[in-house]
């Protein structure tokens, strides 16, 4: 287990990837993340949650003619990757994901015990 965790960052560094831009916001119930992954079909998107690490990976598939020569490239790598560390109060079992038109929406709810509770102050 600990071996795995140590190997991963090296493997990631070996291959250059695009870092997808994200928006992350938090409300009382959990965290919502949006990531831009244009060009990634649904079956090439990979999401992993392992321990407290969330990894988003996707391969770009473009419909290119075989004899095309690129003259200008702003997106010059075929793969996206970004890793986030989740905090303890988030529930990795209940992550839900939607993916449409190249935008990933992830919802990571807070664990029951971490939901905000109003504590009543009694004056006696």
């Amino acid at each position: 287990m600990s071996d795995n965790v140590e190997k991963k960052p090296e493997a990631a560094r070996a291959e250059a990837t695009l870092m997808p831009p994200v928006n992350v916001f938090e409300d009382a119930g959990g965290i919502t993340l949006f990531a831009d992954l244009p060009g990634v079909p649904k079956d090439k998107l990979h999401l992993h949650v392992e321990a407290d690490t969330l990894t988003i990976e996707g391969d770009i598939v473009l419909d290119m003619p075989a004899d095309m020569e690129a003259t200008h490239s702003e997106v010059s790598l075929p793969r996206y990757r970004r890793v986030f560390t989740l905090s303890k109060e988030l529930d990795p079992e209940k992550v839900s994901a939607e993916f449409s038109h190249g935008v990933l929406k992830l919802r990571i709810p807070k664990a029951e015990h971490a939901q905000p509770k109003r504590i009543e102050v009694r004056v006696e």
Binding site: L37, L62, T71, S73, E74, V75, S100
Partner: peptide
């Protein structure tokens, strides 16, 4: 470079333009 990012390529028969504009 602005949004959306673009790749441009050509073949003898056509010009191909790819605009990376997700969520539209």
């Amino acid at each position: 470079g602005g949004f959306p990012a673009m790749n441009v390529g050509g073949t003898p028969r056509s010009v191909e333009i790819y605009a990376f504009a997700p969520g539209l």
